[in-house]
Design a protein around this nucleic acid. Structure first.
Lengths: 226, 226
DNA sequence: CCAGTTTGTTACCTAAATGTTATTAATGCT
DNA sequence: AGCATTAATAACATTTAGGTAACAAACTGG
């Protein structure tokens, strides 16, 4: 999921805040929707189903806490992230906010950097859940995003090339990867390396993961077996 | 410490206020003690040693400011929190109140939700259990809200960047954070820092927290291990 | 079984990545 | 302003991943 597919709803009664926050987030590529009070905010949330809602705690008519509670009641918005804007020192709002189902809060005065990185961080979680770039093969567990490999419950640290080579082979157990394919995928098609390079890396993987996991098909390439 | 172990003293000459505040707080489980004037308030404070005192600024005989000053003089009440009740607009009392040693104030008319959240927030420090945004990793305890880190029971004070870096890495033990990710999260994606910046901060953390807790994955990034 | 070819293995080298320390710059606090 | 703390950088040291060479071993087809 790309940033342009992510909708963010901003709810604040101060147009200045809407503008500055909106500007900073849209320059990251996010789709921005705004609302100027809690009631409108809840309405738009239900209609637009944003991925993230940034809502001011202190607003006339309906405050952020109340709005958040309403939002949380809507089943379509269960997975929506809610972030509160609070004035520094309004400590209580954090507590009440978390009670109401907020995922995070940002204190005013707003620092664009903080704002953007917080939003990114929150949405990263969201993206990760979507993709889940990890898989299991027998006793082997590979998490590409976290760069983590677990073999028989034990964590193994692999250098980059080895990691990439393993995760390539293990991504399709049983498939024979030709040497050309491997070079393309792991080294890049521009890079030229010597003839023994792949072998050496395979060897290291055999040492660390287990000899039987890697089969050589002479004249063709290698395959990973469970 | 649980709510039922927390004592709150309410001091106000208006029985209505005592009742509404008392009701809302006792339904949160707090122990409530009341007093109808400043003199009685101070007396009960010394006797009961409450964790929190909510005291009206405007009272006959002895006003809240005076009472607060007396309370602060008592060594047994040094850690007691004092919150003032003031009518909106009585600006002077805030200033005078903080001088007198108040920790916070609440304006009338009292909104139960605001009151309760404010009290919760103030009392948070007494209750380590239900603190939001804090977590434990092995012998390490991180409380993001309070900017506090405890390692093996000993409190460690970390500067901002180090704190943020550590709490990032420790938030997902085992996950390898790529240098880019770290820069994004800790420094913000706009900031450009030199190539050795992360390393230097990692180094400081290794000094303070322990060398083994941080693993380097060359060409990728760092990870925190238990 | 033999010559040619492909792959395995080891040891070694180098560039790139990271570690370290000292110094400078920025920030915050009184 | 002046001190103390923190952050960033520069300069240098160290480490390691990754590549290679050189040789050994294994497979291949005839």
């Amino acid at each position: 999921m790309k940033n342009k597919d992510i909708k963010i709803l901003l709810v604040d009664d101060e147009p200045d805040i809407l503008e500055i926050v909106g500007y900073n987030l849209s320059s990251e590529g996010y789709q921005i929707i705004t609302a100027e009070n809690g009631i409108e905010g809840v309405k738009k949330a239900k209609k637009e189903l944003p991925n993230l809602i940034i809502i001011d705690v202190m607003m006339p008519e309906m405050d952020g806490i109340e709005a958040c509670e309403l939002i949380r009641k809507n089943p379509d918005l269960q997975n929506t992230l809610v972030v509160f804007l609070t004035a520094r020192g309004e400590d209580y709002s954090q507590v009440a906010g978390f009670d109401a189902g907020a995922d995070d809060y940002i204190t005013k005065p707003i620092k664009p950097k903080v704002l953007v990185s917080k939003v990114k961080a929150l949405l990263r979680r969201f993206k990760e859940e979507d993709v889940a770039d990890s898989f299991k093969i027998g006793s082997l567990e590979i998490n590409r995003d976290e760069y983590k490999i677990t073999s028989k419950g034990k964590e193994i640290i692999l250098p980059r090339k080895e990691f990439e080579l393993l995760s390539l082979l293990a991504s399709k157990p049983g498939k024979v990867f030709k040497r050309d394919e491997i070079l393309d995928a792991v080294w890049g098609n521009e890079v030229v390396v010597g003839g023994r390079t792949i072998d050496v890396h395979i060897r290291k993987l055999r040492e660390k993961i287990g000899d039987d996991s890697f089969k050589t098909i002479k004249g063709v390439g290698y395959k990973f077996v469970d």
